[in-house]
Amino acid sequence: MASTYNRLLFVFIVSVPAAAVIGLPPMMRMPLKRQKMERLDLHHSISMSALNSAMGRQESLGRADVVLENKYNAEYFGEIEVGTPGQALSVVFDTGSANLWVPDNLALSAQGLSGHRAFSPTLSSTYRESRTIFNIQYGSGPVSGVYCSDAVSIGGLKLTDFTFANVDNVSGLGALYTDDATFDGILGLGFGSIAEGGIPTVMQALWDSKQLAEPVFGFFLGDVEQGELVFGGVDPQHYTGNFSWVPVSSVGFWEVVLDSVSVGAEKLLTLTKTRRAIVDSGTSLLVGPAAEVQAIASLMGATVVQKHYGVNCQDSWPSISFSLGGKDFELSGGDLILAQSGGLCVLGIQGLDMPNPLWILGDVFMRKYYVQFDWGQKRLGFALSAGPPTNLV
Results as ranks from 00 to 15, higher is better:
residue 31 P to Y: 07
residue 7 R to Q: 14
residue 294 Q to L: 02
residue 67 V to W: 10
residue 102 V to W: 01
residue 86 G to A: 06
residue 328 D to S: 14
residue 213 A to L: 12
residue 116 H to T: 09
residue 48 M to L: 07
residue 17 P to G: 12
residue 20 A to S: 13
residue 35 Q to D: 11
residue 296 I to S: 08
residue 68 L to M: 14
residue 171 S to Q: 03
residue 213 A to K: 11
residue 124 S to F: 12
residue 161 D to F: 05
residue 46 I to E: 11
residue 186 I to L: 13
residue 86 G to P: 00
residue 226 Q to Y: 03
residue 102 V to K: 03
residue 213 A to Y: 12
residue 162 F to R: 13
residue 195 A to H: 05
residue 39 R to T: 13
residue 204 Q to G: 11
residue 201 T to I: 01
residue 324 L to H: 02
residue 378 K to E: 15
residue 162 F to Q: 02
residue 317 W to I: 12
residue 346 V to C: 08
residue 205 A to L: 00
residue 349 I to P: 01
residue 71 K to Q: 09
residue 215 P to S: 10
residue 203 M to S: 06
residue 266 E to H: 13
residue 196 E to Q: 13
residue 112 G to E: 13
residue 157 L to T: 00
residue 30 M to E: 02
residue 276 R to S: 15
residue 381 G to I: 00
residue 21 V to F: 07
residue 11 V to G: 15
residue 199 I to R: 07
residue 75 E to W: 04
residue 152 V to D: 04
residue 202 V to Y: 13
residue 46 I to P: 06
residue 333 G to S: 00
residue 196 E to D: 14
residue 288 G to K: 02
residue 15 S to R: 15
residue 134 F to Q: 01
residue 353 D to Q: 05
residue 130 S to W: 00
residue 279 V to Y: 04
residue 197 G to T: 04
residue 90 S to K: 04
residue 96 G to L: 05
residue 25 P to A: 11
residue 68 L to E: 15
residue 49 S to F: 12
residue 334 G to K: 09
residue 276 R to F: 09
residue 75 E to K: 08
residue 172 G to P: 14
residue 68 L to Y: 10
residue 331 L to G: 08
residue 280 D to P: 10
residue 311 V to W: 05
residue 255 E to T: 14
residue 161 D to V: 08
residue 49 S to V: 03
residue 367 R to C: 02
residue 295 A to L: 09
residue 142 P to C: 07
residue 227 G to H: 08
residue 28 M to I: 15
residue 353 D to L: 03
residue 6 N to K: 07
residue 201 T to E: 05
residue 98 A to H: 04
residue 20 A to Y: 09
residue 188 G to C: 03
residue 139 G to K: 00
residue 72 Y to T: 13
residue 102 V to Y: 03
residue 76 Y to W: 13
residue 78 G to P: 05
residue 337 I to A: 11
residue 131 R to V: 14
residue 169 N to A: 00
residue 121 P to R: 04
residue 65 D to M: 08
residue 304 V to F: 01
residue 323 S to P: 04
residue 250 S to R: 15
residue 372 Q to M: 13
residue 199 I to W: 01
residue 330 E to P: 08
residue 99 N to C: 05
residue 49 S to C: 11
residue 22 I to R: 12
residue 14 V to C: 11
residue 85 P to F: 08
residue 309 Y to V: 03
residue 176 L to F: 07
residue 260 S to I: 10
residue 368 K to V: 07
residue 300 M to Q: 13
residue 304 V to Q: 09
residue 136 I to A: 08
residue 38 E to G: 14
residue 340 Q to D: 13
residue 188 G to W: 00
residue 164 F to Y: 07
residue 120 S to N: 08
residue 128 R to P: 08
residue 384 L to G: 13
residue 276 R to Y: 10
residue 144 S to L: 02
residue 253 F to W: 13
residue 310 G to W: 04
residue 235 D to R: 04
residue 30 M to S: 03
residue 258 L to R: 03
residue 184 D to L: 04
residue 307 K to I: 14
residue 378 K to N: 11
residue 348 G to C: 02
